[in-house]
Design a protein around this nucleic acid. Sequence first.
RNA 1: GCGCUCGUAGCUCAGCUGGAAGAGCAGCUGCCUUCUAAGCAGCCGGUCGCAGGUUCGAGUCCUGCCGAGCGCGCCA
Length: 605
Amino acid sequence: MRYQRRLQTAPPLGAEKEPMLDLLRAPVAQAIAQHLDLDLAEVMPLVIPPTKAGAGDLAVPCFALAKARKVAPPRLASELADTLASTIPGAQASAAGPFLNISFSPATVAGMLLPALADNPCVALRDDSGAGHSVCIDFSSPNIAKHLAFHHIRSTMIGNSLARIYQACGWDVARINFLGDWGTAFGRLIAGWKRENLSLSDLEAADDKVTFLNALYVRISTAAEADASVAEEARTWSKRLEDGDTEARELWQVFKDASLTEFHKVYGLLGVDFDSWKGEAYYEDKMAPVLAELESSGLLSKDDGASVVDLSAEGFKKPVLIKRADGGTLYATRDLAACQDRFNEFNFDRSMYVVDLGQGLHFGVGFAVAKKLDKPYADRLRHVGFGVVLMWDETEQAFLKGSSKKGRVLLLTDVLNESITRARAIVAEKNPELSDDEQNAVAHAVGIGAVVFNDLKNGRKGDVKFRYEDALNMQGDTGVYLQFAHARLCSIERRFASTCADAPAGDVQLLTRDDEKNVLLLIARMRDALRLTLDNDEPSQLAQALLQLAAGISSWLSAGSKDHSARVIGDDLAVSAARIRLVAAARATLGEGLRLLGLIAPERM
RNA sequence: GCGCUCGUAGCUCAGCUGGAAGAGCAGCUGCCUUCUAAGCAGCCGGUCGCAGGUUCGAGUCCUGCCGAGCGCGCCA
């Protein structure tokens, strides 16, 4: 509706769905289509952002068009350049060999973008493609009575970011933390607890309850190795726990609550929360229906006493194990039950598992079984995999897999706190005028942001090579870089508000600088980045686009330190008023982008 | 052996549906008396693992090699 007036002169294709960059693209494609007597749909994909820097705002490689017309590409390019120059106001077109390059005036771009951004400052990072749809996102999923290790940041922050991004695109999102809260380890813990005659107050007194439980686990495991009767005690408690023994269940609950207390501290630091905390234990008594269904559908067969589903027709070499020879259920069984449970509760249109790529086979077979059962949701399941974390080993001079024996294990909370500490020292040095509270808040935002952004900025499928100096770096392509650009924009807005209260409404015609246009185009391209992020479940697409936006902003703002006329706030109040509109748009876009990645954007730092 | 992920600058990586090789770090130059130098401007640095194929055009798609990481039944 809002674009109706424009549609009388510009073509409809893409304009409704893509009100940002395509507003520039469509008129170009239309003019070319008309000139060559082609369908608009054929031409649109040929109008692309140029890969070569300085080649303009849009480009059209003319190879295919020229071939169809049986002319040389450079000749067609210059022919089209002449056509466009006369048909599109505010645009300049030129041929560079076989490429047609198009540039718009800053005011033309601003006129198209700024009104939309004034209506909704986050419009560049909004999309309603998910409206009316729901998605389950399974992420983080740590094991009870163990620490969140550094590698947990991957699932936790990729999942958190995807949850926010799906939400921004209109999806109804359920964030699920599938806790690993079941297994024989708890029998051991209970046995140890009883042997040592521990009480709740012992646990309460511990600084870190998970550390307390870990230590207990190590002691009882050592004792069990030395003494067979201790091992027998542990087995007995495991059995009692499974059978629902009251005392066992109560202690199990104590351990779980204690672990969750520690988890919440870390999630609090990271700004992550969940809608569902159903863990493995919850599904213990909910697998019978799954087994019955598999049985009645004739999919189960026996293999060495165990029950399996054959998936050779689906291309899997080995069948998937559903029930152990001793009757116990397994990982796959539990996930099938959980999947059904989520469908019952959320009626999801998509269900995602943010779990490392090493589990690809597990999800592959699990999804295949759902399909064999003709589940309506079988095609809605996605494994969002990611690579492992490798730690820099000084003695080996190489990135190696984490190993507790070799001291290459880091706790997530330790890395985060170290980063905050480093950030605190830098804040104190750079901004001593900020209050202590403010310095602490900035150190938190910057310290956490550095670690989180370091994890999100690259494609999720690659292995993460972790080196302290790199992950905690506060210079270059980092989270801090984005936050700093955002804080500068906020600072200019504050100054404008206090010194230019009587400024007129900003007139986009006064935006004439190329660096201003560059920022506008970068904002417009956020839509493409958002779509790529969503299509590929890949937050790095958004992260990379934000880096480019921040670079454009930094370059623009820094121009003012040499050239007084380039400043946002200058002698000409009308120009300042126009530029502050761009500042506001850039600040809102950058701030929202940071939020979607799970970072905090301080207003001063 | 089979499967998955990958191989781009000294290091860490980006490169969207094929269209004109990009960042950051490290090294070297410049730039803070007025909107934040956690920054900006610039230099240096690449037969995109190798070989074929498809195409007007391949870092991108296909095949085969080589190399790395991870995974392949009664743990999760």
